[in-house]
Structure formats: structure tokens, C-alpha cells
Amino acid sequence: MHLVVCIKQVPDSAQIRVHPVTNTIMRQGVPTIINPHDLAALEEALKLCEAYGGEVTVVTMGPKMAEDALRKALTFGAHRAVLLTDRHFAGSDTLATSFALAQAIAEIGETFGTPDVVFTGKQTIDGDTAQVGPGIAKRLDLQQLTYVAKILSIDAASREITVERRAEGGSQILRTRLPCLVTMLDGADAIRRGRLDDALRAARTKVVKWSAADAGIAEPANCGLRGSPTVVKRVFAPTSREQKARQIDTTNKPLREVADGLIAAIFADQPALKHDLGFLGSTGQQGVPDVDRES
């Protein structure tokens, strides 16, 4: 089986700093990681590979330094890595990204064998749109299975796949034909630690680097800024709350008294909650005047 996993290198969003004046991202010292959800997809692909045999190809579209992410994926056990990098891709939105990736996956199919399953993560943590996966599926005319919690089975003979998909209010069991595209939820299993021979092999594997032309994209009009219907017009920092939290006094007070103080403050701020919660008053008896006036 040939499994293709789309991974993206993203800034570790917990550590992003914003320039206080220009509102630009200060990239210095901000580490990059593989989009965490994509690791769930990679782990699932590696598992399928163990169960059914085959190869895992990881692909990313991004700047040159995204090679680091691919190298890492190789260390986890992927067999091949393709970096799609070209200045024509700069400024791609999700439509243009899915176009470029779809073209690359088609080219991967030509060069290394048709994929049976294309994986993406549920969403990225920087773009956060969950749109690229469906976009790729549509362009390659693959059956689309999003929010897959578990791959239940693959029938190689009849070329069918059965999955559990997270839906609103429950789980769907879906069966469809191969090839298909799966966007993977974070599963129960963390990404494996590659064996020493995987790591050695990874260190020696050359990452395949493709330009737009290499990926068979003759017309760059569908790529990058030109191929992107959306445009970011303004970037700004969220307004921070003027006031910090009002602190409930805790000095030398028994906890129950502190709790009383907090409850009084809660109802003072949100009087309607008294009704919602069935407030009996501060002493626990109905009708006793409550604490509104206190604060």
C-alpha cells in the first residue's frame, strides 16, 4: 500500500511573540514543530504500513527550512519525503495550497506509485482551517473522510476502507472505496519513536525537492497569491482587557469565608445568576437580604 501524509511545519504557537508596535510576528527564537495533528496522521499511516505492508511518503509545501520537518518524519519511520518549494507558492491561501498539494500528490502517484490513502491532519495550528484536506480530496476526486477517529479496516481485495468518523452528537461508521483522503483526529497513540535503523536511514535519505514545474504545475496562476481568492487585509493584536481580575481577599481568612466573599462577588456581578442557580440568600434562608450591596 502507498500512503501519502501531508505534514506542515508550523511555529510552536505557544511560543509566538508579537511585536508590540508593528504587530508582526517576531520569528527570532520561535521554534517550529510538525503540526501536532499531522503526527497523528503519520502514526496512523505507519500503523497501516505495518499491518498491510507498503510505503509511507510524507509531503509538505513550504519554505526550504520545512525540510527539517520532513527529516523528522523520516526519523519516525516514513520512507520517502517530498518538499514542494517554489517562490510561486508564496502567499497561498487554502485553495491555492490544496491545488499545489493535489498536483504534487498526483505527481507522487506518477513517480512512486498511486496512493491508496492520502492523510492530512485534522487541521493546522497556525492556519487552523481544516480546509486543505477537503480541498485536496476534491481536486484529486478522492473520497473524503474527515475527522476520522479510527481506521477500522481496509479490505485490500475489494479496495474498501471502513472508518469511525467523529460527527456532531455521535460517531459515524463509514465505508468507502480506495483511494480516499482521511483527515485524522488525534488518536490514542502518540507518534512512535523510530528505531535506530530508522533514524540512520532517515539521516541518509535525500529529501526529494520539487519546484512548481517539477510537480507538473505548468500554470502558476493557480498558485500563491495569484491563485488565492482570499486576502489578509489587516492583522492586529486582540484588545486586552483593561482591568485585571478583581481579587477576592484571602488574607488570614478561613476558606469558607473566602468562598462567601467570592459568591457575593459573583452574584453582584451577575445578578441574573441568582435566579438561574436558585440562590437562597447569603445565609442559606429564603428571603434574607443578600449580598448585592456589599461590594
Binding site: 485553495l95 482551517t129 480546509q131 484536506g133 480541498g135 476534491k138 467523529r166
Partner: peptide, 23 residues
Amino acid sequence: ATTLGRDLAGSVATTLKTGLTAD
């Protein structure tokens, strides 16, 4: 932006080749 809405919006936008802004 539910599991259903996102699944559908992504396909529809790609089919129509139009812009889609998430969340």
C-alpha cells in the same frame, strides 16, 4: 464550523473555487 460544516464548506469552496475563511 462543526465537523459537518467544515467538511462541507471545504468541498464546496474548492468546487466553486472561491475563498473560505474559517472560524
